[in-house]
Structure formats: structure tokens, C-alpha cells
Computed example of a mutant assay.
Amino acid sequence: MYEHVSVGDAVRVVALDTAGRTVLVEDAFYLQGRRMLHVPGGGTEGQDPRRAALRELEEETGLVAGRLDPLGEIDPLPGTTRMRTHLMLATDLRPGRMRRDATEAGMTVQWRPLHDAVAAARAGDITEAGSVAALLLAALTTERCRP
């Protein structure tokens, strides 16, 4: 017998502005018992990953991306679930409408240069797997990880 958890796919979005800053969100995670800093994202809820990424970005940050490029996919817990996390790079940002649900009421937003966000992941300040992978891939893709 092989136990597993059935969970839907997820998305994580590295949103970069023209100054090379990325938007991060911080929220409380019940199972970890602490607030965690991460890139915007969430479940696909059965949507196409690109559509879900655009939805999550706007819901959590109030930003709309004019361009969305895939960074890759990860299997965060392959021994536990089939769930995949789709990683995206959002650019050409403009204001939209924030629409957080009740579970995101305490979420905060902060902007950091991409290289600072990568440094936060290396220092263990950002530990959510999809966020770490997305930030590293975005840094490699954009070559903006150098101060």
C-alpha cells in the first residue's frame, strides 16, 4: 500500500517591474505556525496555469501582467503527491484590482530588488519551495541577481 495526498496543481509568480524589483507577499501559514515570505501564487483551481498565475497575481498584489512567461515546473513533493507547481515570470506590470479571500486578510506586500529576494532565499528567509525555485530561475533568466 502506498499512501499519497491528492492536491491540485499550483502556480508561483515572480513579478518584475522595470527597475528589476519583485513583489513578495507575507502571510500566516497554519501548519508551519508562522508567517512566511513568498512570491504570489496559489492553487490553479482547475484553470490553465497561465490563467491561474494571472488571477493569483492580481488577487494577492493588485497587479496585472502584460506579459507572462513560463520559468518551468517543479514536483515539490514527488513521494507524497502528483501535484506540480508551475513557475511564471510576469512583466509589463500595471495596477489592477486586489481581491483577496478571507484566508488572505492578513497578507502584506513588499517590493525587493530581485537579487535581494534571491539573497533572502539563500539566507533561509524565503523557504517555500515554489518561491525559491521561481526566484532562482527568474534570476538566471533575467541575469538581474547581481547587485
Rank of each mutant, 00 (worst) to 15 (best):
P95A: 15
R99A: 02
T18E: 00
G62C: 13
P113H: 11
Y2S: 15
D27W: 01
L37H: 00
P78S: 12
T85D: 13
G33H: 03
A134N: 07
V25H: 14
M88S: 13
D48Y: 01
E128Y: 15
M98I: 10
L57H: 04
E104G: 04
D48P: 04
R144K: 09
A139K: 03
P113Q: 05
T108C: 06
A121H: 05
T103W: 12
E60M: 14
E104Y: 02
G42L: 01
T91M: 12
L136I: 07
A119V: 05
R94L: 06
G130T: 15
R50V: 11
Q47T: 00
P76F: 06
A105Y: 13
G41L: 02
R97P: 08
A138G: 04
L68M: 07
D75V: 05
L87W: 13
L16Y: 08
A10T: 14
A121S: 14
E56T: 07
G62E: 12
T80A: 13
H38L: 05
T108V: 05
L24A: 06
T85R: 03
G43A: 09
R97Q: 14
R34V: 02
L71S: 05
L89I: 08
V109C: 03
R51M: 12
G106S: 05
A102W: 15
T85Q: 09
A119S: 08
A138L: 07
R12A: 09
D116P: 05
A15I: 06
G42N: 00
A102S: 12
R51P: 07
E58K: 07
L24C: 11
L63I: 02
E3K: 07
G106C: 03
L89S: 10
D48E: 04
M83P: 09
R21V: 11
H115A: 09
W111G: 06
T44L: 00
Q32I: 10
E45V: 01
R94C: 04
V109I: 14
T80K: 06
T61E: 07
T44D: 00
D48N: 02
L37S: 00
R67P: 01
P113G: 10
E128G: 06
